[in-house]
Amino acid sequence: MQKFNFHEFIEGISPEFTNVLDVSILKSEYCTLDLSESNDELNNIDVGCTNALGEYINKHIANNDAKVAFGGYLEKRNIYKRSNHFNSQSQDERDIHLGIDLWIEAETPIFTPFNAVVHSFKNNTNYGDYGPTIILKHNINDVVFYTLYGHLSLKSIENLKVGQIFKKGEQLATLGDDSVNGNYPAHLHFQIIKDLQENFGDYPGVSSVKDLEFYKTNCPDPNLLLKLN
């Protein structure tokens, strides 16, 4: 019997571009963005300053005649050095990004890509953390998996309930601004998770080198689903 491949399953769910943002935004209006430590342009940017990073991202979007910048899966980023949340002495430094970021203005609506139930939600308030976060549970062809939506607005979780049902294409949330989203320029952190490991309203979105092989298996590239390239 052929061994089940979760990554191939995610890639095969939909053969076409899958949008978790406003459906009026076309695939052609997305551009790639490199925030890795190997991007020399960032040497001239204080990536720890929300306004400076936001200006860089907005200029990049405008220069590419786009509405959304995306990227970040497995990027090794310097931005996390600003926060003890990722660099406490009790753990290895975490600086490798496990989701995909969709950079667009605050209040942008977020939509669920599949039928889902709310597994959990939480306001993760550590500096540099997700802020308001929702985790959805999906069951497709008897395969259960989860999607995480981080950096949302506070109102996105105000009246939410565990077990609440969302239909495919239904609005789930809106994006938060830097006052609630962990102090980042507005963006959605979207992550696919096979095993939540008993987490509730939170799941690591950044890995250390030591743990990376596990997370690469448990959190496949969201672009296998989104198909933005």
Rank of each mutant, 00 (worst) to 15 (best):
E37C: 12
N39T: 03
N39C: 05
E41Y: 14
N43W: 00
I45R: 11
D46K: 09
C49R: 15
T50P: 00
N51A: 14
A52H: 03
K59A: 10
K59N: 13
I61M: 12
N63G: 06
N63W: 00
V68D: 01
A69S: 14
F70C: 10
L74P: 04
E75S: 14
I79R: 01
Y80P: 02
Y80S: 01
K81H: 05
N84F: 05
N84E: 14
S88I: 08
S90I: 06
S90M: 08
D92S: 14
I96K: 06
I96F: 04
I96V: 11
I96R: 10
G99W: 07
D101K: 08
E105H: 11
E107I: 00
P109M: 07
I110S: 12
T112G: 14
P113R: 07
N115R: 03
A116I: 02
V118Q: 06
S120M: 08
F121G: 01
Y127M: 05
G128I: 11
Y130N: 09
Y130M: 05
I135F: 08
I135G: 01
H138S: 03
H138W: 02
N139P: 00
I140S: 13
N141I: 03
F145R: 11
Y146M: 06
G150Y: 09
S156V: 11
E158G: 03
E158L: 06
N159Y: 05
N159E: 08
V162A: 09
G163M: 08
